[in-house]
Design a protein around this nucleic acid. Structure first.
Lengths: 221, 221, 221, 221
DNA sequence: GATGAATGAGGGTTCATTCAT
DNA sequence: CATGAATGAACCCTCATTCAT
């Protein structure tokens, strides 16, 4: 499929594989690609640096591997929602918003990793990033809206591709606002500080859903 | 106001100041904070490294200074649109979308710098970032929507703060999609490749406007 | 005789022994002692690294072993010429020159290995090198010239030992000039580029022979 | 001329330049290119590693620079002998042999460096080595023999180019025999151990001269 | 104030060697 | 005996920062 990791890594017992990936994800998510230290990662994973480089050859490859690995984990969540045939478009959108808020809390390190990936300065590295997740997401979203237009749920005058792009932008930004330092602070500038933190999540979900519904769906009377 | 730059920097003749800032913005935007090299910046600016550190003390301070400087440049554009009392809310939103696409092309380096700032891995550094631009933007957007609700243009059921947040997310994401490598590639996944590149900008503007209008404004009949 | 290789290596079937030695010779000749990689050698020989170290204990021992092995291969060629009682001294010298040019082409890897050995930087290693080949060669050459002096073929006023040394220097340098990169380039500076490459070998042989004849042999009238 | 060293190195005061070059020559001559350690060199030269890399960019460049520097030092010696118009060819050859023995003792480190250079395994590096010294030497030697043929001193039947090559081989091998570990041991195999070490040099000189004279010059009667 | 040479800690990567299976 | 995954010391090189001139 790809060659970021050696065969011998794939032959490792799953517990060890996960230990290594967790350590790498944590380091990259915490300190960013450039500042991440392969010796730290080895120490965190309780293996030798030599092994890291035996499995992945370069720091870059290790990064690319975990980006792909992390993406796959996130993909599955979103896929389940979009492919669920029992849900209306409105229900799917609401489920997606809810999913974003929830995964941002549960898999904060993965989201940070994803953010870190999206902000690599090194152009050469960027060109090597796997696009499978974005490919997957964009295709599902576009298809969802096109089907919604056929069923009459989604506004017919919209360009499904660009509408999907805007929707994705909303969801991704929200995810970063929950997981990434800079975006979190920016988010707070829009917060109403009077409201209790616990019920805030629900308000964010319902308002974001409302926003997307207004933008995308035909109004019910 | 802040102390990122030394007094002696402010006493420099404007041409030299700008040469230094341009050089720093370009380097940080091109290579990212970590990879940016103060010696390169000095060379680009045709001054000595010693002077750089005389003016700014640390690389970090130089970065924070130019982030602030760059933000101020962008601020003024958005401010003019939002404060223009001759425009309706709908017109303001359209003008904002158009502005985003235009500035993304014209001031691509500044946008990249802003993006670079938003993706600093170093948590300590993040906490020192100036927030004036976001503060400014968020306040204007919120106020604009609140006024729109009073005038009946904006949907009354929306929470103005969170709606402003979503709108800002759309605009910021669009800006990155035009200026920053990773986001550009992601953007292309939503592109219809059949359409001519030149008229594409107009379509992006009109569809994004449509999306925001549907989300925010009361439908005209 | 020596202990560079383990008993278990000598018990290996000859095909496997040769596979290992070939792989090691090639690696050492290609990349030099320091850059040669034991893991590569194992891979080239299609055995495990563990086995390499089982047979030879250290990289150094492996090197010393193949140096000895390679020397023995070269020795036999020269020995046959020098010991051939049907040849005059002049004929032996010509045969030696011819042999040098031929083996340099045929056993280039072995020559390179020998050269690599002669240029080990590590002083400790040098002191461990087997000297059997040089011992063998020097003794034969000296004896040949001494016999030539007794028979009246070789100039009586020469010191046989030092004359043999000069002759050996000529032959060894010529060998390197054919097999080793640096010496090859140096050789080209003495080339007449107008002459066809194919007949050049013959000219080199005849001129080198002429040179040695003039230096060593009593002029025939 | 070449770009192995930075301009700023050339601007250094000569004492410091020499300190650095001496340190580098010693390290490379002692341990060989691969084993030479840039941190050691810096320490030996009493400067920082950073400075080493500021002046030379890479270890490779530092090596190439000192090879060139060392070559130039040796060149001048040989040049003076060959260009001395008061000497006959025979006298020149004797002077060259004497020079070789003397410089081998006096500038042993330089000779070792030269030897180290000639035995670089890395093919890429080899192709970058400056050839000025060999070029210089070969041209002078060839010219000397051609002039000798015109004046009747040198045997007319010799090919001057290949004869010069053999002569150079003798001289170079002798140099290595005095300066380099491996060659020294090989040299000893041709030694007569009964002779006093001090008068041995003279014997080596006279016998080598005799050898070259017999090979190259027309016999006087 | 301006210069730019000098510093040296720090990090990615290699590879001979070991040892559990 | 054979395997090959694992180890970790060692080395080249970078770059923010200093300071003598």
């Amino acid at each position: 499929m790809n060659n970021f990791a050696n065969e011998s890594f794939k032959r490792l017992n799953p517990e060890k594989q996960e230990r290594i990936l967790k350590a790498a994800i944590a380091e990259f998510a915490d300190r960013g690609y450039e500042l991440a230290n392969t010796n730290h990662i080895a120490k965190r994973a309780k293996i030798s640096v030599g092994s890291i480089f035996h499995y992945f050859n370069t720091k870059e490859n290790l990064f690319l591997y975990i980006v792909q690995y992390g993406s796959a984990l996130i993909e599955t969540h979103a896929g389940k929602v979009v492919d669920d045939e029992t849900l209306s478009i409105a229900q799917k959108i609401e489920a997606l918003v809810r999913l974003v808020v929830r995964t941002s809390r549960e898999e904060i390190t993965l989201i940070r990793l994803y953010h870190e990936m999206s902000s690599i300065g090194n152009q050469e590295l960027i060109s090597k990033l796997p696009r499978s997740m974005e490919q997957f997401t964009s295709e599902r979203y576009i298809k969802m809206l096109e089907e919604g237009q056929r069923s009459g749920e989604v506004k017919p005058e919209l360009n499904a591709r660009l509408a999907a792009f805007s929707m994705d932008n909303i969801l991704l930004s929200l995810q970063f606002a929950y997981a990434c330092d800079y975006y979190r602070i920016r988010f707070q500038m829009y917060n109403n500080p009077e409201i209790d933190q616990e019920e805030y999540d629900e308000q964010v979900i319902s308002e974001t859903f409302q926003f997307l519904k207004g933008a995308l769906l035909v109004a019910e009377d």
